[in-house]
């Protein structure tokens, strides 16, 4: 390798080594440590793994977290798409630029604050139930439910998904859409036959971001979802708090990392695969 090329790559190699690979290996190693009298001791035992992988509550959390993150990803993708489509194809360049700017603004405020603001809206005596009450409906319990969790996840992810989808749709070569119509493709069918396949990479990457953020999020399930069952991030916090079980928490963390690796790899493979079925 060229010496200069190496020099330019060095920062990213050092960064990834120090802050990603190093901690990752330490975490994996730690999952084999033991805790005696509330103190962690270096060891190489499979006890933590054996214990965590055989406990029903761990798997309950695992499938619950996976399910909620998947549900959120599907919901975000579908909610975002009409908005992204309008921003990409139905408004001027200037309007689109403003819209993307406005979509970035939520990230200026703390996610925690945005999550708490849902209390005002979703509580038993909140805005929605007050409105429904006026129509002699409700009240409905929305806080501390899976619904609350999804609302929280969407608070975190939806603006980002809209931005990523908008950008990928706006970059489509409109000649190809016109070419499809010119070959007898009605507008609605062109969406599925041409627009979606062309925007595929961006749409999948948007969904992947949404999944990763939701899957690892602590705030929404904790404050809006009521943590029954706890999601994996809550489980990690709980495990470290009860009896200093950092090694068992590391087991959960490794489970999460492995899942994310598998899902990200699959998504990237799908996103960049040249062909779609015809």
């Amino acid at each position: 390798m060229n010496r200069f090329a190496l020099a330019f790559r060095l920062p990213i190699i050092v960064w990834q080594g120090l802050f990603f690979l190093g901690p990752l290996f330490f975490m994996i190693a730690m999952s084999f440590f033991l805790v005696k009298n509330y103190r962690m001791e270096e060891a190489f035992e499979l006890k933590n793994w054996a214990r965590m992988l055989t406990r029903g509550y761990v798997w309950d959390s695992y499938w619950y977290t996976l399910g909620m993150a998947s549900l959120t990803t599907a919901a975000a993708a579908m909610l975002a798409f009409p908005a992204a489509w309008v921003l990409a194809f139905r408004v001027s360049e200037g309007v689109r630029r403003w819209a993307i700017f406005l979509l970035i603004i939520p990230f200026f405020t703390s996610y925690l604050v945005r999550t708490f603001s849902w209390y005002v809206i979703l509580a038993e005596s909140g805005v929605i139930n007050a409105g429904l009450g006026a129509a002699a409906l409700g009240p409905y319990t929305m806080l501390n439910t899976p619904f609350g969790t999804v609302v929280g996840y969407l608070t975190l992810t939806l603006p980002l998904v809209v931005i990523l989808q908008t950008v990928s749709l706006a970059n489509i070569d409109q000649n190809l859409v016109q070419a499809a119509r010119n070959l007898g493709c009605p507008p609605a069918r062109a969406l599925f036959a041409v627009t979606l396949p062309l925007a595929k990479t961006g749409l999948i990457v948007a969904a992947l971001f949404c999944f990763i953020l939701s899957f690892g999020d602590f705030v929404a399930p904790y404050y809006l979802g009521g943590s029954k069952p706890p999601t994996l991030p809550i489980l990690i916090v709980d495990t470290t708090k009860s009896g200093q079980q950092w090694p068992r928490a590391a087991v959960v963390a490794v489970m999460m990392m492995t899942t994310l690796f598998a899902i990200a790899a699959t998504a990237i493979w799908l996103a960049y695969r040249k062909r779609v079925s015809a």
Binding site: D173, L176, A179, A180, R181, N182, L183, G184, P186
Partner: peptide, 22 residues
């Protein structure tokens, strides 16, 4: 008459072949 009902196929300057199809 909308484009897709005309049967007036066009060969485009950019060719506009679909990259996701063989």
């Amino acid at each position: 008459v909308p484009v897709h009902e005309r049967d007036t196929p066009m060969v485009w300057q950019s060719l506009a072949l679909f990259p996701f199809l063989n």
